[in-house]
Design a protein around this nucleic acid. Structure first.
Lengths: 233, 233
DNA sequence: TGCCCATAGTGGTCCGACCACTTCGGTCGT
DNA sequence: ACGACCGAAGTGGTCGGACCACTATGGGCA
């Protein structure tokens, strides 16, 4: 029960062992881990290797290191899988970008449909706030921020935080900013506003099918435009 | 243009810089990077910190380190975002597990529908092979392997590698093995076989809507069962 | 009583050495 | 002349120890 099985690199072994501790429940969400130095001693490896293992788990969104305080197990909440997903979206080009956009269209249309059925008056008011904010300004930066918030509010209303987190990653700042920059140059502003309005109307009417169609069309519009650019973005 | 802007930790800065190099195209997929030692000098940090940055990017699926050879940029293909996603699925419990299963149901039903429209005779034969293999044995291990292959073949036929990779992560080995263990004990074997057969028939008939319904029912069945377990898994 | 700061403890960074593995070129035998 | 072998150079992997930056805690001071 004590000797190292000698499989794979030392760091990789450490990663697996810590993952196993969490999976088996001996480390619970929010709990603080022993210090890096202690952990290294426990697993019989150097602190350097242990730090790399911790770094890996931090990137995966499993651990969280607080300078001067300690290392903690995250709540394993939806947002924790966001970062890595967003990075992939940022680095994707051409065909891969279209594939991810297709995934987004599928998930976002379904999420919007679910939201139409479940959204509360409070949430609806929040959505409307961002909608009017988008129409009230011409600052691309502000529009983008409210556009993101508009969709996030809707996906959250769908009641599936994991799906919301994935969509957030797929719609990451850089990802959309890149599209926007060129997109708005074709004067498609007005069309986007109409699409947003259509989505909002479907939500107000609590009409899932209309919401699904409106959301699919909204994402599909960007998709079509991007496809016509022949992988230039 | 040369001094460090002093924002965030040194390692974090290094991660961003390397990401930027790839995003801007000065580092292309498959290309070999300078050595860890050289990179550390270039960015003005220690080798330890550089190694952590590389480890982080390796986990994200952006870089690949080959012992004794060098560090390379991955092809940034779909499978590269798989590993991290699978880890999240493995560590999820209770409500989060249901959310992820819902995402899988949405994506898998759509993917199966797409596959019904696009699948080639060759791919269809491959799918049938796994189907008969599932029905020919009682070894859970073998069944699981062919079950995974069955669905993977179908999602690949949908023509969206990114979606296939995400689904692969959501259906990761451990994830499904855990479900299977208890699931089969209720003698739901036969029902699963019938569902697989229904999916296959829809593919043969090139009937997208039937395929969508069959796949949604298939995943939904597991979903319902898991929901009835009151977060015990 | 309450504020403040010295201090211990933690993660973050750096250095230099050595180990394990890959790669490649030269050497040796045929 | 050719091919298999082997050794050296180069690379990532590991180690340990030192110091820095930040946080949290508790005791002392006003």
């Amino acid at each position: 029960m004590e000797e190292t099985p000698q499989k794979g690199t030392v760091t990789q072994r450490a990663i697996e062992q810590i993952k196993a501790m969490i999976a088996q429940g001996s480390l619970e969400p929010g709990q603080r881990l022993p210090t890096e130095r202690d952990l290294a001693v426990q697993l019989g490896i150097s602190r350097s290797s242990m730090r790399e293992a911790i770094r890996a788990l931090t990137v995966m969104g499993v651990l969280e290191a607080r300078h001067g305080s300690g290392i903690y197990v995250t709540q394993l909440e939806a947002g924790d899988l966001l970062e890595t997903f967003g990075v992939v979206a940022e680095l994707s080009r051409g065909p891969r970008l279209l594939e991810l956009l297709e995934v987004r269209r599928i998930l976002e249309s379904t999420a919007t449909a679910l939201a139409a059925a479940r959204i509360t008056p409070d949430q609806l008011a929040e959505v409307e706030k961002h909608l009017t904010a988008i129409n009230a300004t011409d600052d691309p930066e502000e529009i983008l921020a409210h556009d993101l918030a508009f969709h996030r509010e809707i996906t959250l209303a769908a009641g599936n935080e994991s799906m919301a987190a994935i969509l957030e990653g797929l719609s990451s700042r850089t990802f959309r900013a890149r599209v926007w920059r060129a997109y708005q140059q074709e004067g498609a502003f007005e069309r986007t506003r109409r699409e947003h309005a259509a989505i909002y109307r479907a939500l107000v009417a609590h009409d899932p099918e209309a919401a699904r169609a409106a959301a699919a069309a909204h994402v599909g519009e960007v998709e079509q435009w991007l496809r016509s650019q022949n992988s230039e973005v």
